[in-house]
């Protein structure tokens, strides 16, 4: 009886955390993603894809926070139900205004790397490339926002063997 109790698995599981928008923590986020996906039962052949995709989404979130000069936490949520769902949420609002600031002279930025033109240019490229990579990598990908209240949320999901195959979040 006790064994049956211990073996009980809830229908839905959530793992949620947040991290300071710094490059050092993106690796931790992608490793947790692969680990949680593995526990959820995502096919072994898809774990690299999960790791890469969550890493890309977290990188994008950190770049967006850096671009907006905000220190708010990047939020990450994994849920296990019919599918394995990963949501990465940034808090950088008002993308259009920020696009203009990107074109402003480097001195406009309060970023510590404001004089590092190469890094800024490559970061800008990288933010655009993240979406290209995510679009090519993840079959079920939805990016929402930003609006006046919120930043963007990248939602991605992968099938779980033996579960319903619907992709509703």
């Amino acid at each position: 009886m006790n064994a049956a109790k211990h073996d009980h698995r809830p229908d839905s599981v959530t793992v949620r955390f947040a991290f300071t928008p710094a490059a050092a923590y993106v690796r931790a986020a992608r490793l947790v993603a692969a680990d949680v996906a593995s526990h959820a039962g995502v096919a072994t052949g898809l774990l690299d894809e999960v790791r890469q995709a969550v890493g890309e989404a977290c990188t994008r979130a950190v770049l967006r926070h850096r671009d907006s000069d905000i220190d708010d936490l990047v939020r990450v949520e994994f849920s296990i139900g019919d599918r394995f769902v990963a949501k990465i949420t940034d808090n950088a609002r008002d993308l259009r205004a920020k696009s203009e600031s990107r074109l402003a002279p480097a001195g406009y930025r309060s970023d510590a790397r404001a004089n590092d033109h190469d890094a800024i240019e490559e970061d800008t490229l990288s933010e655009e490339i993240t979406l290209i990579v995510l679009g090519g990598l993840v079959e079920d990908l939805v990016v929402t926002g930003p609006d006046g209240e919120r930043g963007t949320t990248v939602t991605m999901s992968w099938p779980l063997p033996g579960r319903a195959s619907g992709s509703d979040h």
Binding site: Q52, E122, L125, E127, T130, I132, V133
Partner: peptide
Amino acid sequence: EFCDSTGLGLLIGARRR
């Protein structure tokens, strides 16, 4: 072992420089 879009951005920048 692993390369993300940051690495791809670097390759583009390195090619130009």
